[in-house]
Simulated scan of single mutants.
Amino acid sequence: MPDRPLSPTPSSPMLLTRRGVLGLGLGAVAAAVLASCTPAPQWVTPTGAAVSGTEKNRGGTGRVTTVDLTAAPTTLDLAGTAAATWAFGGIPAPVIRLTAGDTLKATVRNQLDADTSVHWHGLALRNDMDGVPPVTQAPIGPGGEFVYEFVTPHPGTYWFHPHVGPQLDHGLYGALIIDDPDEKVTWDDEWVLILDDWLDGVTATPDQVLTDLSKGMGDMGGMGDMFMRMGNLLMGATSDLLGGDAGDVYYPHYLINGKPTADPAQFTGTPGARVRIRVINAGSDTAFRFAVGGHRLTITHTDGFPVDPVEVDSILIGMGERYDLQVTLGDGVFPVVADAEGKQDRAFALLRTGAGTAPASDVPVA
């Protein structure tokens, strides 16, 4: 089995570019099309006997997990650089965890000066809880709140984020872990990792970058394969694995769990332990090549669902994707890297199981 079997190779050019993803939010293509065809915002609130019957047939355990999410301004410490941004109480937000069949009741309060929402990425759930204004709900206005309540349909690794403008490129995101009550495999430990590309409060705001992108990339004649930054934009980021274009936005930082390479996130484990690593790509413009130095990775789940196990050296994880990986820990201090595909930079963390000097953030990882 090859080490890198999961790299996407599109057979035709992508109709939605990465700048489109940044502007619309992940998974909002249908929302944009529908909104552009209607004279006023439209959303559908399910009512009636058919809806009530469907909800009843979902069953569920009857257990309810209640959480509060407050979208508010905050400051992110990027190894001494203070970045003004937005968050749900932290970057990433605290993990929301429950068991499949349980009901999630999440009250979202908006303390921003802009509309917002919460989309539960990857979950098949009732229409009015999907969090996509103006298609499935009215946006949550400044000072407002909205209660999302639904039965969790299936186990897996998921995440949540707004579906309003380029808010995904702020810090408004977190992991949603739905445990499988019938899980037959056990692990000694678990590490939830969220990868991100970051610029908010450092070089620009997401809205400023969206404005730059809307003006186009300018005259690229004669530049060839030159890799360079032009303000908030990035020229020459290419990858054959991504169909050519590897992104259009310059990011000064790439993060793992809200931490830059100069102040890396860390995990402490025990040699020989089997760890489940749940990896989520929250980046808006970046696919990441993820690897753990000195370790092989066994893929057990993709986008929340189990697959036949595949052992690899690394994985290429696209925007919005999730992978569950099994790793048997060695003894020492190991680099955890997420190379920004086609962009000549990386996110970096450390895995510690014993004594030793931490490797440099630019250490090669096969």
Rank of each mutant, 00 (worst) to 15 (best):
Y148T: 03
Y148H: 12
E149K: 15
E149V: 06
E149W: 06
F150T: 07
F150W: 13
T152E: 07
T152I: 10
T152F: 07
T152L: 14
T152R: 02
P153V: 05
P153H: 09
P153Y: 08
H154P: 01
P155I: 05
P155S: 09
P155V: 09
G156K: 04
G156P: 03
T157E: 15
T157D: 13
Y158L: 00
Y158Q: 00
Y158N: 01
W159V: 00
W159M: 07
F160Q: 01
H161R: 09
H163A: 15
V164Q: 06
V164K: 06
G165N: 10
G165K: 10
P166F: 08
Q167A: 08
Q167V: 05
Q167E: 12
Q167R: 01
L168A: 14
L168F: 01
L168K: 12
L168C: 11
L168I: 10
D169P: 02
D169H: 13
H170V: 09
H170M: 11
H170A: 13
H170F: 14
H170Q: 11
G171F: 01
G171R: 00
G171E: 04
G171V: 05
G171P: 03
L172T: 04
Y173C: 13
G174Q: 09
G174S: 09
A175Y: 12
L176G: 06
I178W: 07
D179E: 14
D179A: 07
D179Q: 05
D180S: 02
D180E: 06
P181G: 13
P181C: 06
P181T: 04
D182Y: 11
E183N: 04
K184L: 13
K184C: 02
K184S: 15
V185Q: 13
V185G: 01
T186I: 08
W187K: 11
W187Y: 15
W187D: 12
W187C: 08
W187L: 05
D188G: 12
D188Q: 07
D188P: 06
D189Y: 02
D189S: 15
D189P: 02
E190N: 11
E190H: 10
W191C: 05
V192S: 10
V192H: 14
V192K: 12
L195W: 13
L195C: 06
L195H: 08
D196F: 08
D196C: 02
D197S: 11
D197N: 13
D197C: 10
D197M: 04
D197Q: 05
W198Q: 03
W198V: 10
W198M: 06
L199K: 08
D200K: 08
